[in-house]
Design a protein around this nucleic acid. Structure first.
Lengths: 215, 215
DNA sequence: AGATAATCCGAGTAAATACTCGGATTCGCA
DNA sequence: TGCGAATCCGAGTATTTACTCGGATTATCT
């Protein structure tokens, strides 16, 4: 047949088995959060899902496949949440600063919801190409959604709005992630948000580099 | 005695054994780069170091201890390299933009030197508290070194230079890391540097947020 | 040289864990 | 109601791998 690193041997056809698959993914999220990726065994996951290991391996060919499916589900809902925030920002037609604030807060709250799971997945689990692609796609979606709003704003006039949007997404992703997981000194949540917004706002409204220093 | 999660059973006293320890760390760097953390077994490391497993466990109580020692060595040299760059920037007494450019380039080249090792350590290996502390200290060192230079510049007037320095360090760390490991579309290295510098420069010279929008 | 300490060795062990398989159970449908 | 397909089960296996230990080898010092 094929490599089958991700395709299950059985596909869930009835409602019963679809619920099983969902239960397994829910359980995986809990187990990985509590015990990390390496420490979260497939037996743990099956037990937490109230299912036997056999059933688990009916629908997932291996442990990595569970991870990938979990991440896909997780990122999809994350993108939805952030896009919702952005949509409401668009309707209220606020300033650029307001828009960025909503974006940062949305990203921050995403990380705050399940910090341990996020840590297990991003800092401990293997990164098969499927996962990587999944992350790229999420970033692409967010960047695109953001770019649309940036183009509508009259406060920004960027040469390359696409790249700028990507940088904004990457920066807020990284900064909020780090803030949640290690913090900065005595900086409070509110102050962090202000600072991040200031950074992004400054970037988007800044003039190009001075000619002299460009390489 | 004590927990002994990191203390070895024997301490290297003669030159011979000190060379062994170095060889083991060198080998660990190579092995982790090529095979990842999970895939890089202690037997692999010992073999690559031209040493028996027994000797390895004479000086490292467990696999994690090797990782921690390796990271300590790696981060220390990294801080040195970046600080060297900064020192030369100080002597040439350039503009803020020039300073930031040197900083970004230094961070970027650090990541470019051993991308696989960096990936294995940061995205696959366990993160015992000792590692975490080590990273915090590195960030602290860099932020401090940078802050000194920022305070000397007449282009910046920040309310809280400490926090700003930390944000700059975290941002450049995250952006350069991501650029090396996943890139951005068609953005070239040179263009990425320009953009990162523009972002940091804008942040450091930006006025405070407008009163209205502050939470 | 002799004694003691340090270093090195590597076959072997114990434990962990991803994954299998053949059969029992339950569902969908005629 | 009965039959085939889908689902579920869980004790067992095969493999991997971190780590041990008792002894051989080499250095240091007097």
């Amino acid at each position: 047949m094929q490599d089958d690193r991700l395709t299950p041997r059985k596909r869930p056809r009835q409602r019963r088995s679809r619920q099983t698959v969902d239960a397994i993914l829910d359980a995986a999220a809990r187990v990985f959060s509590q015990r990390g990726y390496a420490g979260g065994t497939t037996n743990h996951i099956a037990a937490a899902a109230g299912v036997s290991v056999g059933s688990l391996y009916d629908y997932f060919p291996n442990k990595d496949a569970i991870l990938v499916a979990l991440v896909e589900r997780q990122l999809a809902t994350m993108v939805d949440r952030v896009q919702d925030h952005l949509r409401s920002a668009r309707e209220s037609a606020g300033s650029l600063e307001g828009l960025l604030r909503r974006f940062v807060v949305a990203m921050l709250s995403v990380h705050e919801t399940q910090p341990d799971l996020y840590h297990a997945v991003s800092a401990e689990a293997p990164h098969p190409p499927e996962l990587h692609a999944c992350v790229l796609q999420m970033e692409e979606s967010l960047a695109h959604a953001l770019e649309v709003l940036l183009l509508e704003s009259d406060e920004v006039a960027l040469a390359d709005s696409d790249t700028a949007a990507h940088l904004v997404v990457q920066t807020s992703e990284a900064l909020t992630h780090r803030f949640v997981h290690q913090g900065i000194h005595d900086v409070t949540r509110e102050r962090f948000i202000d600072e991040a917004v200031r950074l992004l706002h400054a970037y988007l409204t800044a003039p190009p580099l001075t000619e002299a220093s460009v390489t």
